[in-house]
Structure formats: structure tokens, C-alpha cells
Design a protein around this nucleic acid. Structure first.
Length: 926
DNA sequence: TACGGAACGTA
DNA sequence: CGTACGTTCCGTAC
């Protein structure tokens, strides 16, 4: 017999990807079922008032206190109650059938607080990521949904737990239905079983609505019988068995209360109709719709990131909520079969047609292989549009098809998207194909929106941004990636699915860019820069292995000698000088030296501490150890460089645009941004980097004091601006003001102290840190800083204001609008908050410097090409460019570089550029 | 074999 | 108890 049903429901749970068919699960709730039901709105509201809205924001002005409290409650209750199934019911805006019965229902409630707005939708996002089904039913309240599911489940022998603060839920309590009522906040819950209800209200749960009808419910604006409270009502119910009995014998009830009842029978009857829960709504009956364990860890992390939630809540998410890998794979494979249906592998003939029809308006692409083309490398390109995924095997194309493909790729009018445009361009370049028309780089776009997020791979990105379709298709793609060496078809399919993922992500990331106000930063700066960087990487820099070999040999001899000397001073068996553990044994036990600063694992043996120990003890072992460290480090660097040299005698680093949260580039494989420069010995390594055959010299061009210039610009401090306009040495000038002496009377100690303060300011230094660095007292450090601020008050005002602005907006900003979100600025944890404050001080300065040199790189690159010069930019080291000068171009290139860098961005102080040229990087220093 | 910590190179 | 990175080694946990 079919159940009577009413209402039209909607069920949200986009992560409902686990393959659970009706056949696999019982179609009626079984005895094993332990169903948790939550009143979404009621609990969200309680969470909102339990936590301060001002302390929980996502950094973009949206309060998240209700979301946090709700998530916390869900996690706790799932963890402690271990349900097998969960559903969360929400009210819909607008009225319900109850408003038609009584037009004053719930009237007189306060307006929803401004900061509560939007939080229900965010809670639903969290639930989606947790794989928890949430439901709404038009014209009915959350309580009716809960009543329906509770009744149905209990009837089938299941167990039910209800989390609700609404008193209407009390009537649902029964032998297998327990109500968890919030006591304080949302995380402390009181168990209400039939005995507890009876105890508290003096009536059985099923009679509670009778009691409530008599007493009234002020929250719902349902007045009861004046003069009748819970005590009287309970007494009458006990005497007459329920409301029906009471009304039937109303005449017999004596006293004032009896008269009051007779005067308000209509109200009582209305109340009783209003508070009766509806138990027969039309809701999904398949238990798998409510099953636990469909949450997606990556999706949840993404949602929590957007909400700026901290690490604690993430750690506490119970595994019970999350899908296990096997189940996800099943779903992914199922979905993968569908995606394959649209996959085409065009033959050479078909390709030209495809390019001029479907792909003419642009496409997403993924390119297989490495950019160091090896023999066995496949050479497939997947191209995806809304209608087609084409996988092209470049090696099998005939000449005409290859020309068509090359033309399509090189056409700047055809917009192209890739996950990592520079990597794709490299792979195509390795096959002789040039690309123009890059319109989107997903990895960079993601980074600009969330610069503190660790870079993710494509499936990770997709999981964070997309719902079931793409999530599972890319999960499958990732899966088949592991099947190394399978046949071509499988590889083509997985590549095609990746391209499809890129295609679907493109509009989402585009919208993300707009909402973070960084779209121009991608379009006008990072995307064109990726192209410049790609060419720099491909060119590489020539390195003389012979020079490095000689250096290494010298260092090897020195290392041996210094090691022998070191051992001669400590006696006993030789130790591994590179082992902090063994060093600690020797220093603090065998030699009995005073203990140094603590580290997590013991006592530090870093250079600063060893020098300090040497000053105290004069022990020769320490000097030898330090020398050994130096020479070992040099050998390490040399060895790394030598191993990176290509057969052609060049080193090709990779510049990453999505790593440094301030917007700087980073360099890997090898890192050419940390080649020694400070010591004479270290600098010699730079003599191995030289101009290529066919080129004349290397040129280095660096910005002078760019961070201090940005500080002067951003702060508008007249004194600092004047310092730069005066042409005087900056630190000498500033020191002369701080110490109130003539510039020529500034001694080296004054200059270096002032310099330390200047740079310290941009890093958010403390008096403590300054004192430690300068080996002066904290008092002296404080005085130094105060003296500085006295003369350069604009700097102090700017630094203060910039942190406060960041605290209010939730992010810092560079001169080009590059953002960095710092939710910790409002943290209650002092350590976290102060750390965020230092980051907030530094990010606009370091980031603006990064913006400027990136602009300069675009200008310089464009100018070199425009002038048809053969000289080329090879490296960027944060405030420096290394350029290779072609014969006869030195003067032209020098002025072009100085001009391009100097006018990259107009500050209120001049941007000065120093240049030097020479055969090697060492010689080009200036 | 994988990972975190310590150490140290750069701006 | 100033920022931003990458690489190496060691020692430990698998």
C-alpha cells in the first residue's frame, strides 16, 4: 500500500557521487539504521548567537560565525553519536500552510540580523562538501521534514536522533526517537528520551503538543490560556488524559483558570492544529540518500579555505563523514565511461575540419609529455570545447594536418586555456610548435585568488571547484595516470578528460578572478609574463663546468684539511660534522660547552650560536666546524649546479608564478635565485655563469633600494621622499636625521644601525629582534626605533594604518591590486595574530616590488623584440635582471633596460637602476 | 621510501 | 620575538 504523501521536496547534495543504487540498499529503512536529523535554521540561529559575528569572517566581509558553530556542532554530534545516516532540514523563505491558518504565526519576531545573511547558503555548501543531504519542502517547515523522516524510520525499526531547539520536536520523542536539545550554544546537547520529557514537562512526549497548546508558544506568537502555565496544563492533562478530554470536560474545571480556559478554547484549538507536526511529506525514501560517508576531503578543505576556517576544525572532521577511496573510485569509473562517449580521436584528415569548425573559437588544452623531449615520449595534445574533446597524436599527423595544427596554435585570435600555460607551451615548443593566444592559466588564476594556498594539481583544483561530474571524471583521470605504460587509448582518454576538466573550470576561475578583483593582474601581467618566463627558461644560461670543477676541487682539499683539523681538537672517533645530533654530543657533553638556544630536537648548532660559543670559549674546534660548514655548503651548491647542466652546457631553471604568496617569482630545478653573492668565496661560483657563444657579455641590472622606495611612496613620508630625491646615500641620509648629525659625520655604526631599522620596519620587527640582530640592548633598540619614527612619522603612520586596513578588509594589497588574505589578523591567538601583522606589513612592500619588476620584464622583453635585438633576458633575481648581450648591442640594450626598468611604474620617488656588464655573472656585478 | 626539522643560500 | 623563498642533509617513521 502506497504511503500517503504531500508536498514537493528538493534535495541538495551535489557530492552524491557514490554508486549506491536502490538495488544495493534496502528500499525501506532497516533496523541497522541510526538516523540523525538536524533542524538547520534553528541550529544555525543558535550558533549565530553563541559566537561573536565580528570575530568570524571569511576575510571578505562575510560573517561566518553561524557556519562555524554549525559545522562544529555537526562534527561533534556525528563523532559522538556515530549515526549511519544524516539529514538536515531547512525552512524556506516565505510562508507555510500554517500562515494560512493563522496570519499572526511567528509575527513579532526580530528582523534577521544583517550578519546572519548568507550564512545559511554557506552552511549548505559545507554540508554538500561533507556529503550530508539537506532538504527543504515548499510550504512546510523543517520540523515537518524531521517529523516525516523520524516517524518513517522509527516505524521501520530504525533509531532516530533529532537535533533541534524547537519545542515542536518534543512530540516526536519515543522509544526509538531521542531529541538532542542544545543547552548552551550549539555544542552542548541534552538527551531527551521519553523519561526525560516526562521528568521535565510532567507529560508524555506525545501529549506535549496538548500542553503547549494550553500554555502557548511565545516564539511562534501563539498565545495560550492566560493564567495557565505548564504546571496547571500538566495537571489537567493527567486528569483528563489529554486535550480532547480537557475540552470535553471544560465546564467541570473550576476556578479562575477554568474560566480562562473556557474563554480561550478557540485559541487552544488553533494552537493545537498549528503545533501538530506533519509526518507524511513526500521525501526521498531511499536510505542511501541519507547515508553517511560521502564527504569529500578536498572539497571540504576548499570550502573551509574560502571560509577562512583554521586548522582545528579540519582536523576534527570525523572519517565517518568522508568517502573512502574505493567508493570514490567506483563512482569515478562509472562517470568516466560517460565522458568517454564524447571523446574523439581525429585522423589527420579530420583535424583540419575540426580546427576550422569546432575549435575555431578557442579551446582548453592539455599536452602530454615533458618539455625535455625524450625519444620514447608520446606527443598527444587534447583539445576540449563544450561539444568535443579531440585527442591529437602529433607524431601521426601528415604534413598538411600538422601545418593546420601549428597555424591554429600560433593564431593569437584563438583563445586558449591551459592549467599551466608555461608548461604546455614548453611541451609544444619541444615539438616545434609555437603558441599564441593564451587567454587563461588556471593555476595562476587560482593563485591570484588564494595566494596562501599550496599549489594543487589539476584534479585537486577540479575537486575544489566543481561538482560531481568533473570531480569524478578528473579523479578517474588521476587514477589512470597511475597505469603507466598502458595502451594509447587509455592515455588518450585520460588526457582528454584532463582537457575537459580545464575547459569546465575556465569560467569558474574567471568568475573567481572577478570576485577577488584580480582579473587585470592575470590578463595584463601574469599571463603575458608566463610567456616571457617560458622563453627565458627555454634559453637557459650558459655555465662552464670546468670552472665549477676547479672550484670543487679546491673546496674538496680545503674540506679535507679543515675536517682533519676539527677532529684533532676533539679527540675520540671522528664524527659526522653534518649531523646536528652528533655535534650536540660533542659540544655540550664531550667538550662541556654552555647550552645554546633550544630547538625542537635539542640545542641549536647554527652558525650564529657557534660564533657565540667561539667568542665565549675560543675553542678551535668551533672555528674549524664553521669553516667546514662553509666549504661543505659551497660544494653542495656547486654539485647541484653541475648536475643541472644540460648536454648543451646550459642550465634551465623554472620560474614559478604561483608559489610565493607576496607575488615574487620562485626558481627551482635548480634555484638560480640563491647563488652566493655575499662573500668573496661564494661569489666565485658566479664566474661559471657566462655569456653564450655568439654573445658578447652578460649584463646585470638591479633596482637600487626598491623596497625602501616603495615604502617612501606608500607612506608619503616627506623625509623619506626627500632622502631619495637628494641623491645622497639613503642610509647615510636617514642616519644623519635619526642621529641629528651632518651626513658626513655619520659613522659606519650609525649607518648600519639605521639600515637595520629601515629594513626591519618593512619586516615588522620588534625591539627584541632588532636588539638581537644588532647585539644591542632592548632599551637601546627601542630608543633607536623611536628616534627613527620621530623623524619619519609618516612611515610609522603608514605602517599602523596598513595593518588596520588589512584587519578591516581581511587582505593586503599591492600597487597593482594583488591581494593577500590574512584571516589571522583577527585571531584571538596572539602568536598567530602578530605573525599575520608582520606579514601584513611586509606583503604590500615585497609584493609591490614584485609587481614592478614583473612590469619591467614585460616592457624590456617587448622593447627588445620591437627593436629586433638579439639580446635576451635570462634570469630574474627579485630586484635584478640578468641579460645576455648580443655583439654590438651593448649600448642600445643598456639604455633600453635602464629605461624599461626605471619607468616600469611611476612612484613618488625615482626608480634607480644600476647596471654592470662583463663576460661572467661575477664580472657583471657592479 | 617518505617526511619533518635544522641549517643556510638569496632578495 | 622581522619578510619571502629552495635545497640539502640527517634522523626517524614507515
Amino acid at each position: 500500500m502506497p504511503e500517503p504523501v504531500r508536498g514537493s521536496s528538493s534535495v541538495g547534495c551535489p557530492w552524491d557521487t557514490v554508486a549506491m543504487t536502490d538495488a544495493a540498499a534496502p528500499s525501506v529503512p532497516g533496523q541497522d539504521m541510526r538516523l540523525l536529523l538536524v533542524d538547520g535554521h534553528a541550529m544555525a540561529f543558535r550558533a549565530f548567537f553563541a559566537l561573536p559575528a565580528d570575530s568570524f569572517t571569511d576575510g571578505r566581509g562575510q560573517s561566518t560565525n553561524a557556519v562555524y558553530g554549525f559545522a562544529r556542532m555537526m562534527i561533534n554530534v556525528v563523532q559522538s553519536e556515530r549515526p549511519t545516516h544524516v539529514a538536515v532540514a531547512f525552512d524556506l523563505p516565505g510562508g507555510t500552510f500554517r500562515d494560512r491558518i493563522y496570519d499572526q504565526y511567528k509575527a513579532g519576531r526580530d528582523e534577521t540580523p544583517e550578519q546572519f545573511h548568507g550564512q545559511i547558503a554557506l552552511i549548505q555548501q559545507v554540508l554538500d562538501a561533507m556529503g550530508i543531504t539537506w532538504l527543504t519542502v515548499e510550504d512546510y517547515e523543517a520540523d515537518d521534514i524531521i517529523a516525516t523522516l523520524a516517524t518513517r524510520t522509527a516505524a521501520a525499526g530504525g533509531e532516530v536522533l533529532i537535533v533541534s531547539s524547537d519545542r515542536d520536536a518534543i512530540q516526536l520523542v519515543g522509544e526509538s526517537v531521542t531529541l538532542l536539545q542544545p543547552v548552551k550554544g550549539v555544542t552542548e546537547l541534552r538527551r531527551m528520551d521519553p523519561a526525560a520529557v516526562e521528568e521535565k514537562y510532567q507529560v508524555a512526549p506525545e501529549l506535549y503538543p496538548d500542553l503547549a497548546a494550553l500554555v502557548g508558544e511565545s516564539a511562534d506568537n501563539l498565545p495560550g490560556v492566560p493564567g495557565v502555565g505548564p504546571k496547571t496544563a500538566a495537571k489537567w492533562i493527567a486528569a483528563h488524559g489529554g486535550l480532547a478530554g480537557i475540552l470535553a470536560h471544560a465546564d467541570e474545571i473550576t476556578g479562575k483558570a477554568g474560566q480562562s480556559l473556557r474563554d480561550h478554547v478557540a485559541d487552544v484549538e488553533r494552537n493545537r492544529r498549528m503545533n501538530e507536526a506533519v509526518r507524511d511529506l513526500d521525501l526521498p525514501t531511499d536510505p542511501s540518500r541519507y547515508a553517511l560517508g560521502r564527504g569529500d576531503r578536498a572539497a571540504l578543505a576548499g570550502v573551509f579555505d574560502d571560509l577562512a576556517f583554521g586548522p582545528t576544525i579540519r582536523r576534527d572532521v570525523p572519517d565517518l563523514l568522508l568517502a573512502d577511496d574505493a567508493a570514490q573510485q567506483d563512482a569515478a569509473e562509472e562517470r568516466a565511461a560517460e565522458v568517454m562517449a564524447e571523446l574523439v580521436r581525429p585522423d589527420a584528415e579530420r583535424l583540419a575540419t575540426l580546427l576550422s569548425d569546432e575549435l575555431a573559437a578557442g579551446a582548453a588544452l592539455e599536452v602530454e609529455g615533458s618539455w625535455e623531449l625524450g625519444e620514447g615520449d608520446a606527443s598527444a595534445i587534447a583539445l576540449a570545447t563544450a561539444d568535443v574533446i579531440a585527442v591529437v597524436d602529433v607524431a601521426e599527423l601528415d604534413d598538411a594536418a600538422e601545418r593546420a595544427l601549428a597555424a591554429w596554435l600560433a593564431d593569437p585570435a584563438v583563445p586558449k586555456t591551459a592549467y599551466d600555460t608555461k608548461a604546455s607551451a614548453h611541451r609544444l615548443r619541444a615539438r616545434g610548435l609555437q603558441v599564441a593566444g593564451w587567454a587563461m592559466d588556471l593555476a595562476i588564476a587560482e593563485f591570484l585568488c588564494r595566494p596562501d594556498q599550496r599549489p594543487t594539481d589539476l584534479p585537486g583544483l577540479a575537486l575544489r571547484h566543481l561538482q560531481e561530474d568533473l570531480a569524478s571524471s578528473t579523479a578517474a583521470a588521476q587514477q589512470s595516470l597511475d597505469l603507466e605504460g598502458t595502451q594509447d587509448d587509455a592515455r588518450a582518454e585520460q588526457l582528454g578528460r584532463r582537457a575537459d576538466a580545464v575547459r569546465r573550470l575556465e569560467p569558474l576561475l574567471r568568475a573567481d578572478l572577478v570576485s577577488h578583483a584580480v582579473e587585470p593582474l592575470l590578463d595584463d601581467l601574469e599571463l603575458p609574463l608566463a610567456d616571457v618566463l617560458g622563453r627565458m627558461e627555454a634559453v637557459g644560461v650558459a655555465v662552464d663546468d670546468g670552472v665549477l670543477a676547479d672550484l670543487d676541487e679546491q673546496h674538496a682539499r680545503q674540506q679535507e684539511a679543515v675536517a682533519q683539523s676539527a677532529f684533532s681538537h676533539i679527540g675520540g672517533d671522528p664524527i659526522n660534522l653534518g649531523s646536528p645530533k652528533q655535534l650536540q654530543e660533542v659540544l655540550f657533553e664531550r667538550l662541556g660547552m654552555p647550552k645554546t638556544r633550544r630547538t625542537k630536537t635539542g640545542y641549536t648548532t647554527n652558525a650564529e650560536a657557534l660564533e657565540d660559543l667561539f667568542a665565549q670559549t675560543g675553542h678551535p674546534f668551533l672555528a674549524d666546524l664553521l669553516a667546514h660548514r662553509d666549504v661543505t655548503k659551497m660544494r653542495q651548491i656547486i654539485e647541484t649546479l653541475r648536475r643541472s647542466i644540460s648536454p648543451a652546457g646550459r642550465i634551465h631553471t623554472s620560474f614559478q608564478q604561483n608559489v610565493a604568496a607576496t607575488g615574487r617569482l620562485s626558481s627551482i630545478g635548480p634555484n638560480l635565485q640563491n647563488i652566493p653573492a655575499r662573500t668573496e668565496e661564494g661569489r666565485r661560483i658566479r664566474s661559471a655563469f657566462h655569456a653564450s657563444a655568439g654573445f658578447e657579455t652578460l649584463l646585470t641590472a638591479d633596482y637600487s633600494q626598491i623596497e625602501m622606495r616603495i615604502m617612501a611612496h606608500l607612506s608619503g613620508d616627506e623625509g623619506l621622499i626627500e632622502a631619495f630625491r637628494s641623491g645622497e646615500d639613503l642610509h647615510r641620509y636617514v642616519a644623519s636625521r635619526v642621529f641629528d648629525v651632518a651626513p658626513e659625520d655619520v659613522d659606519p655604526a650609525m649607518r648600519s644601525k639605521t639600515k637595520a631599522v629601515s629594513y626591519g620596519l618593512a619586516y615588522g620587527l620588534s625591539a627584541f629582534g632588532l636588539a638581537r640582530q644588532l647585539h644591542i640592548s632592548q632599551k637601546e633598540a627601542t630608543a633607536l626605533r623611536d628616534g627613527y619614527f620621530e623623524r619619519f612619522g609618516g612611515v610609522r603612520d603608514y605602517l599602523r594604518a596598513s595593518v588596520e586596513t588589512a584587519r578591516e578588509t581581511g587582505y593586503t594589497e599591492t600597487i597593482l591590486g594583488r591581494r593577500r588574505y590574512l584571516p589571522d589578523l583577527t585571531s584571538d591567538n596572539r602568536q598567530r595574530r602578530e605573525n599575520a601583522e608582520r606579514v601584513a606589513l611586509n606583503s604590500p612592500i615585497q609584493g609591490s616590488a614584485a609587481d614592478i619588476i614583473k612590469l619591467a620584464m614585460l616592457r624590456v622583453d617587448a622593447a627588445l623584440r620591437e627593436a629586433s635585438l638579439a639580446s635576451r633576458v635570462l634570469l630574474q633575481v627579485h630586484d635584478e635582471l640578468v641579460v645576455e648581450i648580443a655583439p654590438g648591442e651593448r649600448e642600445a640594450v643598456t639604455s633600453l633596460i635602464v629605461e624599461g626598468m626605471g619607468s616600469a611604474y611611476e612612484l613618488s620617488v625615482p626608480l634607480e637602476v644600476g647596471v654592470g656588464t662583463g663576460r661572467t655573472w661575477l664580472d657583471a656585478a657592479h
